[in-house]
Design a binder for these strands. Structure first.
Lengths: 188, 188
DNA sequence: CGCGACGTTGATTTGCCTCAACGATTGTGG
DNA sequence: CCACAATCGTTGAGGCAAATCAACGTCGCG
């Protein structure tokens, strides 16, 4: 069943009945994406929330000098979206690109809103997930302020060994916020 | 009524009945803090969530070289806590210091958990608040990657004019992640 | 009054960027 | 299957943004 990873994912945060899980998962539709394909590009309005079953994506923004900055990398068990654009219907500043041919599950904005209203426990579920996300972003910011590029790279390798092996150094550099040339020099 | 700011705050996110608001606010207890006092120090376990009625705080971490980095500044209408420590009961890596004599409202971990269980709409309320927080942290990280110190300072001034006028430049520098000497040079 | 915190300035250093060049690998079309 | 282009990782030279260290005058406060 293609939803089993999603079911297990939800169960990490709150205990849900089989019935509730079935209701929630029903709204998540399978979608296959080929390498290089974009799920979202700048100025789009993000109308979906995606959960990665397998494969790999990068979510990135482009600064005014044209440099790409990877906001985060998403592999199995991660979420894909521009949460700002999704919540507010505002034009996105982000791009979502498949780095590998991937399978994901997608829920539309309409269905998500319906779920929140019709199944109140989803509010608890996504409250807890969002609160954990806040923690993660805060910690990332602190690392960016307190650690050198070398230390951040080391931390990335230790924390996400599964991601490292599947990414080019160029993509890692864009995640760390440094140039790929400097990353190369660091690695010695 | 000391809870009116909190009531208005909650109403920005979801529409709540007077009765629900009364129930929620009942658990938030007034607390006065004098300038220089600490609500939390490193290795404490954060057992409260605070909402600022008036005054000013900084939430900061200390890196291994002993430098303080302000994670954020909280004035009226902002929240005070180490969300990681509060959620997980883990020792905090943060410090919360009153920069002015302040009045806040505080809810204990026990009461908050009780609220989530007894009044389900609080899950929706804090889900939405947390999701907005995620957006804010993501944008802050992007600014840190894409903007120079000068641009970040300009953005801070434009975005938080009320905070700027109440903070020393040293505290602003700790928020921007730069040395106070360099901030001084930037300002010309 | 004297002390500590503050903002400022200058000299020097450092972390990281930019640009350019190179060979190695991968992918693509003929 | 080969030829070519594109992408990749690496290295070096030079430059810039920001840190560090030290010194100074000012101010608020005990």
């Amino acid at each position: 069943m293609s939803h089993s990873l999603l079911r297990d994912h939800f169960r990490k945060f709150v205990s849900l009945s089989e019935n509730d899980l079935n209701i929630i998962c029903k709204y998540f539709k399978p979608l296959s994406v080929t390498k290089g394909e974009f799920l979202l590009t700048q100025n789009d309005i993000c109308k979906f929330e995606g959960f990665v079953i397998n494969g790999c994506f990068r979510i990135y923004s482009i600064d005014k000098k044209g440099n790409e900055k990877n906001l985060y990398i998403a592999i199995e068990d991660w979420w894909l979206m521009d949460i700002d654009s999704f919540m507010n219907g505002s034009p996105s500043e982000l791009n979502i690109e498949a780095l590998e041919t991937s399978d994901i599950l997608v829920i539309s904005k309409t269905d998500k809103d319906f779920l929140y209203e019709s199944l109140p426990i989803t509010n608890k579920l996504f409250r807890i997930m969002s609160q954990k996300a806040v923690v993660a972003w805060q910690k990332r910011l602190i690392r960016n302020h307190c650690l050198t590029a070398k230390e951040r790279h080391q931390h990335f390798i230790n924390t996400y060994p599964k991601i490292v092996s599947r990414l080019s150094d160029r993509q890692i550099a864009k995640y760390l916020g440094i140039s790929h040339e400097f990353l190369s020099k660091i690695k010695k």
